[in-house]
């Protein structure tokens, strides 16, 4: 079970979860619940494949994923921050919209509502082989994963620093805990919450791009509940980037093990359930209470 190949695929499985969970953290720390992560992942995946398909450049695809993620999260921001509608309802509606729109457009563009044709994935990072043994050694290490895996890991560190070591992070967290106080100090609650939600769209969109580029195509509903698992990882990691990383790795590991067990006589469904059960246990507080930001879900 601890074979290298499982750990290897665990990290790949964890990558979209890491991006989406980080996104969830930025949104929820600002006080906006983001059930829409699922739909944002799907949108990001779709946009990245479309752009990669037409440009042949997966990096352009990744940027498109970020952009599309921000665009659809903008709907969430406008509906829940400007119109102050229920954030959960808005998220549910966005998930429906993403599901319908991506299938609809897949059909319009490629004439199939099931999947896109294959597109190019990202080239792994590495030094030219002609540089000799050192280059080969370096390549063996960093050339092993698609670049977005490293970007995901780096994003965790950046997110942790931004949230807990910068004025912006302090303001964002304060907006989620006590928006009245933030407002009194002359910081715009609306602007902070827009930042949180749009950041979550950018990150989850990138997660979707990884998901699609790693499979080299778009498949309908390919997010397959990962947005909800990311939500679980965010809670399990107590709304902290480093904690969420741990949870994502754990959940990615569970997914990898489950895939490794497929076809054998082991009920994989129970392995699949682990993230969900753990999250419920964490919320009840058996292993240290997970406490959401105080003002979460409340329009301001």
């Amino acid at each position: 079970m601890f074979e290298l190949v499982v750990l290897d695929s665990a990290l790949r499985m964890a990558t979209p979860l890491i991006f989406a969970a980080l996104g969830g953290i930025f949104s929820e720390r600002s006080g906006v619940i983001n059930i829409a992560l699922e739909g944002i992942l799907l949108t990001g995946a779709f946009a990245s494949v479309v752009v990669t398909y037409y440009t042949g450049d997966p990096w352009a695809g990744a940027f498109a994923g970020v952009f599309a993620g921000m665009l659809i999260s903008l709907i969430h921001a406008i509906v829940s921050i400007v119109f102050r509608a229920d954030q959960i309802v808005s998220g549910v509606a966005i998930n429906l919209l993403a599901m319908g729109a991506t299938q609809f457009l897949t059909w319009i563009i490629w004439g199939s509502s099931a999947n896109s044709p294959p597109v190019q994935g990202m080239a792994h990072w590495g030094l030219p082989e002609s540089w000799g043994a050192i280059a080969r050694g370096v390549n063996a290490v960093i050339g092993h994963y698609p670049p977005l895996v490293y970007i995901a890991l780096a994003s965790v560190v950046v997110a942790q620093v931004v949230l807990f070591r910068t004025p912006f992070g302090l303001r964002l967290r304060a907006t989620g805990e006590h928006p009245e106080a933030v407002d009194t100090l002359g910081v715009s609650v609306v602007r902070m919450r827009f930042s949180g939600v749009l950041l979550s769209g950018a990150l989850a969109g990138l997660g979707g791009a990884f998901l699609a580029l790693n499979t080299h195509q778009f498949v309908k509903n390919m997010s397959a509940g990962r947005g909800y698992i990311a939500l679980a990882a965010m809670i399990f990691g107590k709304w902290n980037p480093i904690g969420a990383l741990g949870a994502c790795l754990l959940f990615g590991y569970a997914e990898a093990v489950q895939m490794g067990l497929q076809g054998r006589d082991v009920p994989t469904q129970f392995v699949q359930m682990i993230p969900y059960v753990l999250t419920m246990v964490a919320l009840v507080g058996v292993i240290g209470r997970a406490r959401p930001p105080a003002a979460i879900g409340k329009p301001y």
Binding site: V79, D86, S90, A93, L96, G100, A101, F104
Partner: peptide, 15 residues
């Protein structure tokens, strides 16, 4: 899938 779009837009507008 057009109706999925219709349904989602309806809900966002209702909300």
């Amino acid at each position: 899938e057009l109706i999925l779009v219709l349904q989602a837009v309806t809900i966002i507008l209702v909300v």
